[in-house]
Write a protein that binds this DNA or RNA. Structure first.
Lengths: 172, 172
DNA sequence: CGATTTTTTGAATCATATCAACGTACGTGG
DNA sequence: CCACGTACGTTGATATGATTCAAAAAATCG
């Protein structure tokens, strides 16, 4: 979809921060290697993960990228990674894109929207155990790859409680 | 964006159900008049509202519409309404759409995605009071128009608890 | 008006968070 | 290859935000 050949590439180490909550972002990031996360920090200083982006995923604060407003999230590498930078000049104005690109974009957006809608339904109406089980089914490779505390943050519970959930599941 | 002039129109009364959770949907709905909701019912029989769709909004289960899988939500009129039906033959295949339509779609999808992302951040990291206050700022007209219990369901609390929240806010 | 729905109130209970302590695994430098 | 430090995971005790249930009060509607 994006012209990765000409895109600017950046290598980052685990822990490196590409965007800080409250800043206005210039870029979206396409992950070539490694894994990033986007997360919001609440008033109590706790981190809540919005998205994981392993290989071939894009990550950004879409509102900040599109409308140049302060970002609601920070973006940070959770592994040593390599990303392609997506700039507003390449991608901010849809009318410059080819029809073929727009169709690809529409399909990806739709799939993304479906997954995101499901996440909202899960947060509203599923038990935390069910949210965890759904995560393991939807992202089996991430379950292996990520520490428990990050998964806990993504599904909306504390690490301690996810530990309880796992124990209860194991007992069955 | 959609060809509303030729679209099939349907009038429905308050309480009428256009899609039942678990069914495969044929249509998306564009609301000309009135207001609909989409909602999931959990194991305990409780209703959780995914989306409100007042005038000029579209509502559907996108996964069910696109992939012909069972819907995770039901769609129901919360006021007497009039909707235009959007069918898969009109809208299922992006390559049939004109470039201009694709651009409009991309913009609407992006705005929708921004709002949806914000909702997830809210559910993960905001207090229920903050979620309510954000709702009143984001959808001031709906606050007037909708009963408290529906707003409670949307922000993810019980009506009783939203009543408490309102009292606490009023005291300040 | 009366009937139905919505909102409020209060008490008991539950799911999950918090905090602190301990055990475990891991990675890096010596 | 070992030892140490740091990050991660588990456990249990206690605290809290939110739900549940029941009932009364208020608003809405035919």
């Amino acid at each position: 979809m994006l012209n990765h050949k000409t895109a600017q590439i950046k290598k980052i180490v685990k822990g490196e921060i590409l965007l800080k909550q409250g800043e206005i972002t210039k870029y979206g990031y396409f992950v070539n290697r490694g894994c990033l996360k986007s997360y919001a920090v609440d008033n109590a200083g706790k981190e809540h993960i919005m998205q994981f982006a392993p290989e071939n995923w894009m990550i950004s604060d879409l509102d900040s990228f599109t409308n140049q407003v302060p970002s609601l999230v920070s973006i940070e590498a959770i592994e040593d990674s390599e990303v392609s930078l997506i700039s507003r000049s390449d991608f901010g104005d849809f009318s410059k894109l080819e029809k073929k690109t727009l169709i690809e974009l529409a399909i990806k957006s739709r799939n993304n929207m479906i997954a995101t809608n499901k996440r909202i339904i899960g947060l509203l109406s599923w038990s935390s155990e069910k949210r965890y089980l759904d995560f393991t089914e939807t992202y089996p490779t991430l379950v292996q790859r990520l520490p428990l505390k990050l998964i806990a943050s993504y599904i909306g519970v504390t690490p301690e409680y996810l530990s309880d959930i796992r124990r209860k599941i194991a007992k069955k």
